[in-house]
Amino acid sequence: MSFDTNNKKTVKPGLKNVKSFIPAILILSIVLILLNGCASSLQKAKVNLAQGQRLENSFQTEEAAAFYQKTLKEMEKEVRKNPSSQAYLLKGLAEFKLNKWSEAASSFSLAASLGEDKAESWAGEVSLYGLALSFEELGLEQSAVRLYSILSNKGKFSPVVRAAVGKLIDFQLNSLEEVGEKDREKILSNSLKIIEKALAEEPACGFYHYLLSQVLSHQKNYLESFEEAVMARELGLPSEEIYRDNDNQIVFCYRTLSQTLPLEPLAEFKAIYQHWINKWNWPDEETPAWKGR
């Protein structure tokens, strides 16, 4: 009995202790659930963003935009509940993908103020790119070109750098008509340098290979232009228009090389060409699969 009594006596304080721990355990559980919820919300947003990028790469931009919207909504909620550098970074990335320049810049700034180092330069680059687009719309081309040049030289945020390099090259090529042969060569070799520098940073970017193919075509270097266009196609291009334009470049190179290459290299080139068009299911050498007529 005494044992029992003693036992009861020893158990009671234990129960009391457990009872006194219950609020702490409850709070801890709530905190854990909240933390878990927060982590999973960031995790979900990252998955949605990656899914959006994957769809964008296969030109399914409508579906991609839906995933970016989802990420944005998720992160808007997240930053209200639990503002963190990562949440602002993801919010900024989604906004950037949805062409909301000023919102993206401000999200990156907030991410930087919360300790995300790279976000500070991203915020600046997005603002500069938005500014350059505004200059261009207002007809202030030289100011726009200066900003595109700064971004293509010093930019760290690859989507902005890509867009800036594309714009810069188009401006360079635009001046070709008004200059003499010597200046023409200078402009083209300068354009090549810009693209090669960008390619050194991102060798698997299809868009840079597309740009390179176009500039090489201006230099009448059709064999290399063809090779770069094939690489661009294989690596993926950001829009349907570029994809079609790149295919037209491939056909143009084929037609030109068929007329200019000596017999032996021509046979070699035609065998390679055949290999690619079989892979792409083109009905013949001069008709890409999407072409209707």
């Binding site: 594309g166 740009l211 009448k220 228009e241």
Partner: peptide, 13 residues
């Protein structure tokens, strides 16, 4: 996005 400035040879072709 697409480059609007094409070489003369491309336009003729």
């Amino acid at each position: 996005e697409t480059l609007k400035n094409k070489p003369v040879e491309f336009i003729l072709d």
